[in-house]
């Protein structure tokens, strides 16, 4: 079947079979920023935004993307670059393999927290929001420091 959807602000058509997993279809189409580490919905590395909401692309049928707007970290150039600088400052990307999914999820979180009217960075809530994004290298502390600094820089 052919899917028509919008990926990173570009209308695209993707060939796939109805049983295909979205993550595989995206990677095959060149969206290498979508990483896959578990394939069972447990690690969050394959996170994308679908109509603005974060979903694990390894756990959803590609057919679901029909007519949807999909965003990967590459589609959020400006915010991603800004956040990346904070992550890099902490060295919180160690191997970096989890970073694209983490950064995308973090940006979704910041947007949602702002919409809720959160003023001060609530680390416990952030840990909860990001709990589905595993990282085996960093111990998470650096990621959380980076996010706090990023959040505070936006407040200024």
């Amino acid at each position: 079947m052919t899917l028509s959807c919008t990926i990173n602000n570009k209308a695209v058509r993707l060939e796939c079979s109805p049983g295909d997993v979205l993550a595989d279809v995206l990677r095959a189409a060149g969206y290498k920023e979508v990483k896959k580490a578990c394939g069972t919905g447990n690690c969050g590395l394959c996170t994308i935004l679908m109509d603005g909401l974060p979903v694990a692309s390894c756990s959803i049928f590609a057919a679901r993307a029909q007519g949807k707007t999909i965003t990967t970290i590459q589609g959020l150039k400006k915010e991603a670059t800004e956040l990346a600088a904070f992550i890099a400052a902490e060295g919180a990307e160690q191997c970096g393999y989890c970073s694209p999914g983490f950064a995308l999820m973090a940006l979704a979180m910041v947007k949602e927290f702002r919409a809720r009217g959160m003023q001060n960075f609530d680390e416990a809530e952030a840990r909860h929001y990001l709990a589905g994004n595993l990282c085996r290298c960093s111990g998470y502390q650096g990621q959380m420091r980076a996010l706090k600094n990023y959040w505070e820089s936006r407040n200024e």
Binding site: K32, E33, T72, A84, A88, G96, S99, P100
Partner: peptide, 21 residues
């Protein structure tokens, strides 16, 4: 000095860099 890693920004933004990419 705590300098950022030289490949940090590319990796965080998901540039193809790993074997399978």
């Amino acid at each position: 000095h705590s300098l950022p890693k030289i490949d940090a920004l590319s990796l965080i933004q998901g540039k193809p860099a790993y074997t399978d990419d």
